[in-house]
Design a protein around this nucleic acid. Structure first.
Length: 853
DNA sequence: ACCGCCGGGTGCC
DNA sequence: ACCGCCGGGTGCC
């Protein structure tokens, strides 16, 4: 097995001097480059560090570190040391190297002991950790207390294998974490981000180039962010002792100042203006506390301007740039990236010209020189990781940025994800994470964030695990306390309900939600009842047979048809027939694709039963159940040839998983071809729109549906009545979206007054504050989706009272859906945490309720 | 490094 | 003199 940390250190030792020599960058001091190189090397190496979850202490053993006089690494009394296998050592393939926190080698473990440890370490039976309690001044060797940690089931193997080689693990006096501490732990997590909003550093005015006036709490955030970038405060747990810098947790000390973290986590609630504050930071705190020098398009003497630019270019074309990475793991969030650009236009003074480049799309300019000439480069996590995987020559990784800002930073919480690895490799002087939800489930999620911020020594996983994660997970009070301190130092978090000087941070205009009942006309009602009775008898049969889950896709298809009836008859254009009737494989495939599309469009099964999270890369099995491709692939590979569908136990094969072909995602042609007709719901909407228009022509509306084909149908009457409208759905390209949003947000007299919005395109970060009225054409299964959509306009920047109208067809499946929505919300509120104990059963109950069975 | 180990010098007491 | 003992050279893995 190779030994990554070791090679990393070697790399550093060999190249350190040349790095230092080469570093003549005006804006970066030497230490920064050096430690950057080292930590990068170590970080890349340490990414294989296993999780410390559920580790128990097997026992301890006094060992010896030898060969001290050959190495420069020193340790303090009580200091933690790392033990790294060194199988390539020419003298002993069992060698175990001892290194301090900075990766400097201290010595080796004595040969015989190393041989015993090598077996345990190489077979991953235990993780061995060392602490030096005394003898740190010794010349030739020193004692080290070794602790063996691992999974309970490996304990005996480890103890016995060490004993066979004459090393007895001392297992006495080990106290295991008490169960009741779990409760405490949960509390501690919940409170981790509490109390972070106490006033930090007063407030700061934004540079003149910021067009939008900052609110008080935003000025406070700006002040905090500037001071995080400019002040030379030591990172948490470091203190100066004599002429040394000492880490109180690891007991490591160094002569050099520990690299400070220029940045942090801005974890304000959604809607408090994190983006605006960040834009203000970019423009206000460029270098040495000076604002970003940007071109003013006011007419100046030409010559003078040229000279000015020559100077500015010198700043900007070096390698000091901003890289903004908005969240982009599905099409909903794509919008947030475009929106970001929109926000630059909105919040930056019109006279100021800022070069903002959107780095995505196949035509993106990969030239390092070009990218370096921009003031701001915006890209997505996907693009970044795609570039990173393709080759070492990823343009974004070749640039030393002034700032890297991660929007929706919690996307990188999984350290094993390619995206996270790509993000961690970015080179930057200042690093920021914007996130509305910093810790979702556990302390584990924090590691990548701290690693990104380069918070020493926790950017190396081992030290994070030993000092913070494991103690915290095991309910150790000091561990939790340290975690809290750590987070507190680098995070600013305010909630919507936080107060400044006794007043709420933001006051949004009032929001009114009303339900408008729609009555079907006689013909619609007859058609609806026909479909309902048919569906009822089919589902009733499934319930009686106990085969609801096996026929889940069918059930959803029935519900789907009923929901479509409620909106418009033309939505039912395609009716999928029974799977069993498929004659050829091609036909079967076609039907499965159709069902998958129905399931996805219905929005009913947003979660994969394997990961219990939203389905990503959806595939459908031959038994018509939908999963994330990676999840079901894992199930299939672990069950080796005898794989069964987790929901219905039918045989499944990897080769039989079907996904929706990309080009098939939407076909509009069929609907356009038919002669247009109206429906009760369409008329209800049009009545509202016409009334509003007559009351106030400046009012803008969002018309939201889950069915993009319904949006298409709505285009006809809107055109007929002369409304100016735009449309935004998931199928549109980034550029098109940006254009549409810009048009809609414009306050020009001839700007569109209506946006047709597909529910799923209304993702986080999308800003549609120009609208003050929202029409939800059809109920969603998940009320949170609706809320999220409403929040696109009921957010900071909204000047008017927001009115939301939900159309619900009377005596229909829609009414029942609303009932179930409420029930689910109650359930979540009442029994928090135990809500997903029996999801499947509750889903069957839901289906019964929907059809009044 | 005030140890252990190695190997050459040496050899009654 | 195929041992023991002495004392100098030496020293991580």
């Amino acid at each position: 097995m190779c030994c990554p940390i070791f090679s990393g250190v070697m790399f550093f030792n060999r190249w350190m001097s040349s790095w230092a020599r080469a570093s003549e960058d005006l804006f970066t001091d030497r230490n920064e480059i050096n430690s950057e190189t080292l930590s990068q090397a170590i970080r890349a190496a340490a990414s294989e560090e296993p999780d410390a979850d559920g580790s128990v202490l097997f026992g301890q053993l006094q060992g010896t570190v030898v060969g001290l006089r050959y190495y420069t690494g020193v340790v303090n009394q009580g200091e933690m040391v790392g033990l790294v296998r060194e199988p390539q050592n020419p003298y002993d393939r069992n060698a175990v190297m001892v290194a301090n926190i900075y990766g400097n080698q201290v010595g080796h473990i004595k040969r015989e002991l190393a041989a015993a440890m090598a077996y345990v370490m190489d077979n991953k039976l235990a993780k061995v950790e060392g602490v030096v309690h005394y003898g740190t001044k010794n010349k030739f060797n020193m004692p080290v207390m070794l602790s063996f940690w691992g999974k309970e089931e490996n304990k005996n193997t480890v103890v016995e294998s060490m004993l066979r080689r004459g090393y007895k693990l001392n297992t006495g006096g080990i106290k295991s974490a008490e169960a009741f501490l779990c409760f405490q732990l949960k509390n501690a997590f919940d409170n981790l981000f509490e109390g972070l909003m106490e006033s930090k550093d007063g407030e700061k005015e934004a540079a003149k180039s910021v067009a939008t006036p900052l609110l008080l709490h935003q000025k406070q955030a700006l002040s905090w962010m500037c001071s995080r970038e400019n002040k030379c405060t030591l990172p948490p747990f470091w203190e100066k002792r004599g002429d040394l810098y000492y880490n109180t947790l690891t007991h490591f000390s160094a002569r050099e100042v520990p690299e400070r973290v220029r940045g942090g986590i801005l974890a304000d609630d959604m809607g408090l203006g994190k983006t605006l504050t960040t834009i203000a930071l970019i423009l206000t705190n460029f270098h040495n506390g000076k604002p970003l020098p940007v071109e003013m398009s006011v007419s100046v003497n030409n010559m003078k301007q040229c000279k000015f630019w020559a100077r500015v270019d010198k700043y900007l074309k070096t390698d000091l740039l901003h890289l903004l990475i908005p969240c982009l793991n599905d099409c909903l969030l794509l919008l947030s990236s475009v929106n970001l650009q929109d926000q630059f236009e909105q919040h930056v003074h019109a006279n100021v010209k800022l070069n903002v480049y959107l780095y995505y799309g196949s035509e993106r300019n990969r030239s390092k020189k070009f990218l370096s000439s921009q003031d701001v480069v915006i890209t997505t996590y996907n693009v970044l990781s795609a570039d990173f995987e393709v080759s070492r020559g990823s343009p974004l990784h070749g640039i030393h940025w002034l700032r890297v800002v991660l929007d929706e930073g919690h996307t990188i919480r999984n350290p094993n994800a390619q995206m996270s690895k790509a993000v961690l490799q970015l080179k930057a002087q200042r690093r920021w994470i914007l996130s509305g939800t910093p810790i979702q489930n556990s302390v584990k999620d924090l590691w990548t964030l701290l690693a990104f911020l380069r918070l020493k020594p926790f950017d190396v996983r081992e030290w994070w695990n030993r000092v913070i994660q494991r103690p915290a997970m095991q309910g150790d009070r000091a561990g939790l306390q340290n975690l809290q301190t750590l987070v507190k130092c680098i995070t600013l978090r305010r909630t919507k309900t936080s107060e400044v000087n006794g007043r709420p941070l933001v006051s949004l205009p009032e929001k009114m939600v009303c339900v408008e009942q729609v009555e079907l006309n006689q013909q619609e009602r007859e058609e609806y009842e026909l479909a309902r009775n048919e569906g009822r008898s089919t589902i009733g049969r499934y319930v009686a047979e106990g085969t609801v889950l096996r026929n889940y896709a069918d059930v959803l298809a029935i519900l789907m048809r009923l929901r479509q009836h409620c909106c418009h008859p033309d939505l039912l254009a395609k009716i999928s027939s029974d799977l069993g009737a498929a004659a050829t494989p091609a036909e079967l495939r076609e039907r499965l694709v159709e069902k998958l599309r129905l399931v996805l469009a219905s929005g009913s099964d947003e979660e994969c039963s394997v990961c219990l999270d939203s389905v990503c890369l959806p595939v459908i099995t031959h038994c018509a159940h939908v999963y994330c491709r990676p999840c079901i692939a894992k199930v299939i590979s672990t069950q080796q040839g005898t794989a069964r569908c987790p929901l219905c136990r039918s045989d499944i094969k990897e080769t039989e998983l079907v996904e929706v072909p990309l080009e098939e995602m939407e076909d509009e042609s069929s609907t356009h071809a038919k002669k247009w007709r109206t429906s009760s719901k369409v008329q209800a909407l049009m009545g509202n729109l016409l009334r509003l228009q007559s009351e106030d022509r400046s009012i803008k509306c969002l018309v939201v549906s889950q069915f993009t084909r319904f949006l298409s149908i709505l285009e006809t009457p809107l055109r007929e009545h002369g409304f100016s409208f735009v449309r935004l759905d998931g199928t549109m390209s980034q550029k098109k979206r940006a254009q549409v949003i810009q048009d809609f947000q414009s306050s020009a007299a001839n700007s569109p007054s209506i946006m047709l919005l597909s529910l799923k395109a209304g993702g986080v970060g999308l800003n549609l504050t120009a609208a003050s009225h929202v029409f939800l054409m059809d109920p969603a299964w998940n009320p949170a989706t609706e809320e999220q959509c409403i929040d696109r306009c009921h957010r900071l920047g909204q000047k008017r009272k927001v009115v939301v109208t939900k159309f619900i067809v009377k005596d229909s499946v829609e009414e029942n859906m609303v009932r179930i929505q409420r029930k689910k919300q109650d359930l979540v509120e009442k029994a928090f945490g135990s809500a997903n104990t029996d999801k499947k059963t509750s889903r069957i109950d839901d289906i019964k309720a929907l059809l009044e069975l």
